[in-house]
């Protein structure tokens, strides 16, 4: 019993350590800048929510959030659609070159982003893709595809092959099989893939830093960075902005924590 209490105290303390900086960030946005710098630990005296409105509108956090939503949604949808189609074909259909295609995608699991971003930058520059939404949607989709195909293919590999043979005997074409048989039954794999690619796109920084200079197209990571240099010492605004981008993520996480933890850990372990 004592041991258990001790463990609770120990892990409780560590959990507090994980949450305290976030909590501090949250309540500091209600304090004045002078209070933050003179008594950084004290609690706020009053709750004035105008600072959130200010950093959302004037600071542009709303714009960054919208851009992140667009880039994340578009690339995640594209990953799910293209990778499930290809994953199905590579798992169930024997066609010339299928092994080569699969090996090509496996290579993508090994290549780190550094091995291609320099030339990707030149390519996008040459095609005038930089400072458009494509500049992030295309690479986020491309980077998500290899792992997505790998996960989806393994999932389909594990399904009984009689399922597909039956569909074939019923006269269904491959595309029909994909649409009406596959799409519904591989949903668990799609959830994992979707969570993993969406979080990857949501948090991506390096490419966003290099490819998007236009303030009106910046996503949360790069937008927040320019916000933090614009309001370098206006901690109140900065903390309000940080709070606004973290709270929805935390809420989402608390609501779907099982799926999200499973999605991230499976994605990472299998990738």
């Amino acid at each position: 019993m004592i041991r258990r209490r001790f463990l609770h105290a120990l892990i409780g303390a560590y959990s507090l350590f994980a949450l305290l900086p976030l909590f501090w960030m949250f309540y500091s946005s209600f304090k004045s800048n002078a209070e933050i710098s003179q008594t950084p630990l004290s609690l706020p005296h009053s709750f004035d929510f105008r600072v959130f409105v200010d950093s959302w509108r004037v600071g542009g956090v709303g714009k960054y959030a919208l851009n992140s939503v667009i880039a994340t949604t578009a690339s995640t949808v594209l990953v799910l659609v293209t990778a499930s189609m290809a994953g199905f074909a590579l798992s169930r259909l024997r066609f010339p070159g299928s092994r080569a295609v699969f090996l090509l995608f496996t290579l993508g699991l090994l290549l780190p982003i550094q091995s291609y971003f320099i030339m990707q930058n030149q390519e996008f520059d040459y095609l005038n893709l930089k400072d458009t939404r494509w500049a992030l949607i295309i690479p986020y989709t491309a980077m998500g595809i290899p792992l997505a195909i790998w996960l989806i293919k393994s999932y389909i590999d594990s399904l009984p092959k009689e399922l597909f043979e039956a569909a074939r005997i019923d006269g269904s074409s491959d595309i029909q099989t994909y649409r009406f048989l596959m799409f519904p039954i591989i949903r668990p794999a799609l959830v994992t893939v979707g969570i993993f690619s969406a979080l990857g796109a949501w948090n991506e920084f390096l490419l966003a830093l290099l490819y998007v200079q236009d303030e009106s197209l910046k996503t949360i990571p790069t937008g927040l960075l320019s916000f933090s240099s614009k309001y370098a010492t206006d901690y109140r605004m900065l903390f309000a902005a940080l709070t606004m981008v973290t709270v929805p993520m935390i809420a989402l996480y608390v609501g779907f924590n099982r799926q999200i933890v499973a999605g991230i850990t499976q994605g990472a372990v299998k990738g």
Binding site: A74, L78, T132, R133, I175
Partner: peptide, 22 residues
Amino acid sequence: FKAKMVLAISLVLALAITTGCS
């Protein structure tokens, strides 16, 4: 199905084009 796929993909693309200044 094809029509739906084409629709879905072109929606995503249209969204990106119209909102990102090409």
